[in-house]
Design a protein around this nucleic acid. Structure first.
Length: 551
DNA sequence: CTGGGGAGGGGGCCC
DNA sequence: TGGGCCCCCTCCCCA
């Protein structure tokens, strides 16, 4: 084999990053190999310097300067971050190790503040979106220029101190998970804005002058760091070795060009060409989002990354292969529960605008599907199709057990599931392995109910608890109170389409709220709802019946 | 139990 | 590549 580039084979291990992160999180929780302790108001958080440097621009700069500056080979072991509320720091650490940000709405501002201070851009962006705030609004006061001199340090620190006090007062409602309101400009038939820039809500007073971390944007409201070299005067270095949150914030602007990405816009794709050091790191710490991404990952080693075709794409949550360009975001909404399309008449919300369009027919009275044999009109084409079978008298769907015929396949399914012919059902154990071989003879018949070996069998991340194939891996730790699947979905969405985080409030809160109700009921943890599984089981039953008839 | 309607979700086609 | 539109399938609910 030639040692040249042609001989290289890229074998992707898409779960590697997830497993790696998961193991690091385990180490963090057990204190294993922790070489850095973050403290905030007495709370201590063992962590890893490498992880923090990877996720936080602040720490990257801090440790980079530490090593480059020769401040000591051992480095800091304790970093006091009293300027970040303990809960927020906890949430940010959780994010760093799980790629999941789980916070109550009441703590959103604390986390935003912490993310800004620590230079965790994507978290800051997400929080800003949730709060309906724009970087522009926050930056109004500090828009004088990108290079605010360090003289601003003193006022900055005072503000931070005040802010932290406010944070402490607000912490009492830490546990209250409230639904964040939709953006004010949300309107029926008008999806949530795709860009946080379209959120006109001003930032809160206590927030305006915090050091911004918004990436460079063409808007004149571009923020600039206001925190001076002593960002937090109360942060003290512990005896011996310790670090304070200081020194590096003025350099945000310098490095921002490395991590920045344009504000989410319609064209905000994962532009691999951009040198998005920080964000790429964070993204890669999440999980593969699609088949295409896996392919892309294989070419990363070569330097320039190519974006392969997005079709088909694999759902990072349920692993399902989604066919069709642009269909994955649509599919992802089935996990996140995001319903950006709201009926202006009744307020019902939908995941898809075409569903909303059909729904609107109820209000407009439009029934475009008219029966040619009777005055019956229908909202759905499939209803008309079913209806026509009544005229024709066709009942192509026959129960293989009791031979009762139905005009609709779903009615046959219901019949089969019910007790109608339960007593006639299979009386022998399944013969699994032979199933696929016999299926062909029934192909094409509605009665066949044949198995489709090629059909995808979705693996529910909720079932079994094993989750070895799920994105986060079995050891990913998700805080109680948030649905695991939706947590994964949120991660995936953040990675797939950052611009869609404009609708993050809905997503996030769906994730927090979804603990029951119809949606969960419909998720069918047992997987029985999977069409493929259903067909397989039916095929088994039909096969059994055939055997019995043969006997 | 059955017929019918509404809705959720996936895929194909097109722009 | 993403979104709109449509068709299809499936499930749930109601009368």
């Amino acid at each position: 084999m030639s040692p040249g580039e042609d001989g290289l084979i890229g074998i992707p291990f898409p779960e590697h990053s997830n497993e790696l992160l998961s193991h690091l999180n385990d180490q963090r929780r057990t204190g294993l190999l922790c070489d850095l302790t973050l403290t905030s108001h007495g709370a201590r958080y063992p962590t890893h310097r490498s992880v923090m440097a990877a996720v936080s621009l602040y720490f990257r700069r801090l440790f980079g300067a530490e090593e480059g500056g020769g401040e000591g080979g051992g480095g800091f072991s304790v970093c006091q971050l009293d300027c970040v509320a303990p809960d927020a720091l906890d949430a940010l650490l959780e994010f760093a190790y799980t790629a999941t940000l789980t916070i109550p709405s009441s703590g959103m501002r604390d986390v935003l503040r912490g993310a800004q201070l620590l230079g965790i851009q994507c978290v800051a962006d997400a929080c800003r979106d949730i709060l309906g705030e724009t970087a522009e609004a926050e930056g109004q006061e500090v828009s004088a220029g990108e290079q605010r001199p360090p003289q601003a340090t003193s006022e900055r620190t005072v503000e931070i101190a005040n802010v932290v006090e406010k944070i402490s007062r607000r912490k009492t409602d830490r546990k209250k998970v409230k639904k964040v309101g939709l953006p004010h400009n949300f309107s029926p038939l008008n999806p949530l804005p795709a860009s946080p820039a379209s959120h006109p809500s001003p930032a809160s007073d206590s927030f305006r002058s915090l050091p911004p971390t918004q990436p460079p944007s063409p808007e004149p409201e571009e923020l600039h760091p206001k925190l001076g070299q002593n960002g937090d005067p109360r942060a003290i270095r512990e005896p011996g070795r310790g670090a304070t949150l200081n020194g590096e914030f003025p350099h945000w602007a310098k490095e921002r060009s490395l991590i920045a990405h344009p504000p989410p816009t319609q064209n905000d794709k994962l532009s691999e060409d951009d040198d998005m050091e920080g964000l790429d790191m964070m993204r890669s710490s999440s999980f593969p989002s699609s088949v295409a991404d896996r392919g892309a990952a294989t070419s990363v080693a070569g330097g320039g990354r190519k974006r392969k075709s997005q079709t088909p794409q694999q759902c990072p949550v349920c692993q399902k292969i989604i066919h069709g360009a642009g269909k994955l975001p649509r599919h992802m909404r089935t996990h996140t529960g995001e319903k950006p399309f709201q009926c202006s008449a009744c307020g019902v919300r939908f995941t898809r605008n075409d569903k909303l369009k059909i729904h609107m027919r109820k209000h407009t009275g439009e029934r475009p599907y008219t029966c040619s044999h009777c005055p019956a009109r229908f909202l759905h084409s499939y209803d008309l199709k079913n209806h026509l079978s009544l005229h024709s008298g066709a009942r192509p769907f026959e129960c293989p057990l009791c031979h009762k015929a139905f005009a609709r396949e779903d009615h046959l399914q219901r019949h089969r599931k019910g007790h109608s012919c339960l007593e006639l059902r299979t009386r022998r154990p399944r013969r699994g392995p032979e199933l696929g071989e016999d299926g062909g003879e029934k192909e094409g018949s509605p009665l066949s109910l044949q198995a489709h070996p090629s059909m995808f069998h979705p693996r529910s991340v909720l079932e079994g608890g094993g989750g070895s194939g799920s994105i986060g891996g079995p050891s990913l730790i998700f805080p109680s109170g948030i649905d695991r699947e939706r947590s994964l979905a949120l991660q995936a969405l953040a990675q797939l389409a950052p611009q869609r985080l404009a609708s993050y409030p809905e997503l996030f809160l769906r994730g927090l709220e979804m603990q029951g109700g119809r949606d969960l009921e419909r998720e069918d943890p047992g997987g029985t709802r999977s069409p493929a599984l259903q067909h397989d089981r039916w095929a088994d039953e039909v096969e059994d019946e055939e055997i019995e008839e043969g006997e």
